[in-house]
Design a protein around this nucleic acid. Structure first.
Lengths: 159, 159
DNA sequence: CTTGAAAAAGCGTTAGC
DNA sequence: GCTAACGCTTTTTCAAG
């Protein structure tokens, strides 16, 4: 497993936690897979320690929460500083997600959340001062996160 | 709250769950905020019922997991069908996230995960057959999800 | 690597303020 | 709307195959 080879139990655990990481107990997964709850807990612990599981996050509908300004910024960073700038961008209030892309240009995508248009401008300004060029800004209308079904064996698809 | 006005306790709960939605108990949050654990549980329940909390997901390092092909597709959909196509795209195996953008063009962003290059091609083909034009494909190098610090009052920033 | 069992912690519900 | 108290579930920690 250290070489990234996940067995069926590991994949089943990841799939279950992608669907609901808070209300799915080790026992639930254990029952489906025919192993003990202890085994599932040990596996989860190992996946966390190995860095395959990097965290557990709540998904929020920002519009319903009264924060309707959910936007995506397409930015460009000089390649040598891309990783560092992407890391620094995470600390700017309002930044929700950062993705580094293997491009020469438009190589950092940043999702941001603002309380109003002034707030969005402020975030853009902060990123610019960091050294990121903002190439484009787009309003996000809807966002869905999907469990990666590749973790499922073909004969489990009827979950 | 029905009108999207979250009070300090709600914001504190959301912030805590963004950081670690699996290992943070109601009691942990209650202690920090000086209320009872029951109160926090009720609030979480309400946030879920109101649709502000839409789910809990595990964050996975796909590269460490042995799935190094993490890519982003920039797609275009005709506006009238954008929402429907975005919904259908979620059901294609390998699709990890879908974002609808308020654009005339390049209005659907899709993150995908593939086992190899053939797998990526297959996903692209599936999306094309759905009716999505693929404008660009980019390899994701790194991805970070950040707690939205706007949920924190200014004097709580030292958590 | 997996299991089982006891103690501790957490959760959902109910009742009361 | 907040809290306390109940019974049930889950996690933790340990020992062991």
């Amino acid at each position: 497993m250290k070489d990234g080879t996940l067995d069926e139990l590991d994949r089943s655990i990841l799939y279950a936690l992608q669907q609901d990481s808070r209300h799915t107990s080790s026992g639930d997964i254990a029952e489906r897979e025919g192993v003990s709850a202890s085994t599932v807990r040990k596996r989860i612990q190992r996946l966390e320690e190995e860095g395959i599981i990097t965290g557990y996050h709540v998904a929020i509908d920002y519009e319903t929460a009264g924060l309707p300004l959910h936007a995506k910024l397409v930015c460009s960073a000089p390649i040598p500083q891309r990783e560092e700038l992407a890391r620094q961008a995470r600390d700017i209030p309002g930044v929700e997600a950062v993705r580094e892309i293997m491009n020469g240009h438009n190589n950092v995508y940043i999702n941001i959340i603002g309380t109003d248009h002034d707030d969005l401008s402020r975030i853009g300004q902060d990123l610019y001062e960091l050294g990121l060029d903002i190439e484009d800004e787009q309003i996000i209308r809807n966002e869905y996160v999907c469990p990666y079904r590749g973790f499922l064996a073909r004969d489990d698809l009827d979950w």
